[in-house]
Every structure is written in C-alpha cells, then in structure tokens.
Amino acid sequence: MVADILTCNFFELFDVPVAYELDFDQVQQRYRDLQKIVHPDKFVNASDQDKRLSMQQTSRINEAFNTLRQPVDRAIYLLKLKGVDTVQENSTTMDAAFLMEQIEMREALSEIHSAEDPLAELDRFSAQIKTSMQGLMQNFSECYAQEKLEKAQELIKKMQFMQKAGKEVNELSAKIEDELY
C-alpha cells in the first residue's frame, strides 16, 4: 500500500523496512518507478494545478532518495523518526581515542603536500576513511536495531567527522590536480 507521497516517511515512500540496512537496488528501482509517474515531464500538457503538485511530489521523492542514499543523512533521519534531533543535540561527548585519531589524521593531511606521491597518499586516506565509515555504519545499524539511541547518536557524530575528513581529502586531491596541470 502506497501512502501519500507528501506526508508518509521516506521508508514508506520507497516501500522498504524502517532500518539502517537498505536494499539499495530496490530503492533505485522504486525511485525510477515513482519518477515515471509523478515527474513534471509527465504533466507538460496538464493544468497548472497538476503541474504544481507534480513538482512538489517529485521534489519530495528526490529529497527522500538523497536522504536514504547518503549514510549520514539516513542515520540522522532514522533518529529523527524516533524523535531524536541530532543536528540540535550538541551534548554528546566523543571518546578520547577517536578524537586523537582524528587529530593525527588531520596532521598527516596537512603535511601531504611534501609527500613523494601526494595523490597516491590521498587515495590511501580515502580508502582508510571508507573502511572506518563502513565500521561505523555497521555499529550504527546494530545500535539502532537494539534501540540504543544514545550510542547511535554518538556514532552519527563520528560518521560526520569521517564524512568531513573525506570531503577534505577530495578537496585536497582537487587542489593538487589543479597544480599538476
């Protein structure tokens, strides 16, 4: 049963169980199927009212798709469904070991310019971040399933750190590429 596109939650919209683990193939399939029905291209000759509704619904499907496919956004959204607002909540504390790791990584990144092959070094960082991220995702999935929401929030913070680090690595790569050409 399909609920109202504009009001149902993103998991219902994509007809998948409310859980962190996601059958992404199914989400993509559903995304295409939904778009084939509601996309504005299907309403080019319709009334203005239908056009507006189509734009609203497509916007929501896109928002849902973007949220579900991004690991951090998906986690935040899941907690939000439980009434926990991660963005506002700044009280969670980080464990010291994790923070140390982060600091070390930032330091290494700041010195990357002088490395022999900085791009290869950055690729290595990327891979490392990916692995850490997968571990955090796995942990989050378990915590969420067991309703350990406080721990889940802490994991989101860590994921956000990792995501930010990943972004920095990408930006650094882009900068070094620019210099090379």
Partner: peptide
C-alpha cells in the same frame, strides 16, 4: 494523484 500512484505500483 495518490490513487494513480497506488494503481501503478
């Protein structure tokens, strides 16, 4: 619109 989607799905 919702009923269309329901039917199509």
């Amino acid at each position: 619109m919702n009923s269309n989607i329901r039917n199509a799905m």
